[in-house]
């Protein structure tokens, strides 16, 4: 059986909030190392990969591999009943028909309990190769969101150029052009505002802004976001959580002109 308790329901609420517009039905794959999810969006352009490590739960117990087939819209409805600060426990039998969710308030003695029906989801898993990216850019997640939403007002796609001079996000649209350039920047007092650019070779890739703006719904999970680029491979956008847990998005680049 599975029993996994989060100290803060907000973690799961934010994760599900961040992916529910990209993915509708998906398996939460539970094993002794934690709960993982891998799913593509309907158009097979983007891939979501979530890992909530066992260490992110206290306690965590999972005796056998269990796939929890969930409809994320339904899960959202149930999670809406949890306060951000509530403790959240997920429970399921070894071959479950439903997922049991318990929300416990820390402030008072309120306990709420829900059972969510599960579904059989036949999901393809893709092998994601280990990649040495040519450029790895770490920046405030709010800054990345701002850049993507600002540029989306002008264009459907953004070109990201990473060079020794910095990283440039630029777009061309019917009403005109736009570009935002960031350089490495260290803020000693507020490290969450740092911009770090690691580069082994210059990169230039074009991506659909619609998807990037969608990924930015995960900004609530982490002050910083890491974006990794190599020519002609999918972009990786990573929101790191505590205990090596993470939410990653991969996006196929646009090809040609």
């Amino acid at each position: 059986m599975l029993e996994a308790k989060l100290d803060q329901a907000s973690i799961l609420k934010k994760v599900v909030d961040a992916i529910k517009d990209l993915v509708q039905d998906c398996n939460f794959d539970c094993n002794d190392s934690g709960i993982a999810l891998q799913a593509m969006d309907n158009s097979h352009v983007a891939l979501v990969s979530m890992a909530l490590k066992a260490e992110s739960f206290q306690p965590y117990r999972c005796d056998r591999n269990i796939a929890l087939g969930l409809n994320l819209t339904s899960l959202t409805k149930v999670l809406r009943a949890a306060q951000n600060e509530d403790m959240l426990t997920l429970r399921a039998e070894d071959a479950p028909d439903s997922l049991n969710l318990v929300f416990e308030s820390k402030a008072d003695d309120r306990i709420s309990e829900y059972d969510l029906k599960l579904m059989d989801i036949d999901q393809e898993h893709l092998g994601i190769p280990e990649t040495e990216y040519a450029a790895t850019i770490t920046l405030p997640s709010s800054e990345f969101r701002r850049i993507c939403t600002d540029l989306m007002a002008l264009s459907e796609s953004v070109t990201i150029d990473a060079s020794k001079d910095g990283v440039k996000f630029s777009c061309t649209g019917d009403i005109g052009n736009g570009a935002v350039t960031l350089r490495s920047h260290t803020n000693v007092d507020k490290p969450e505002l740092n911009v770090d650019i690691e580069l082994s070779e210059p990169v230039s890739l074009t991506f659909s802004l619609k998807y990037l703006v969608n990924f930015c719904k995960a900004s609530a999970l982490s002050h910083q976001v890491k974006i990794c680029l190599s020519n002609e491979v999918p972009l990786l956008v990573e929101y790191a959580l505590e205990n090596q847990s993470h939410l990653r998005f991969y996006l196929a680049p646009k090809i040609g002109d």
Binding site: E124, L126, T206, P234, I255, G256
Partner: peptide
């Protein structure tokens, strides 16, 4: 501008 590639052309099925 540019055609959208599929993620499946980069990552293979397990």
């Amino acid at each position: 501008k540019g055609s959208q590639g599929s993620i499946m052309s980069f990552f293979s099925k397990k």
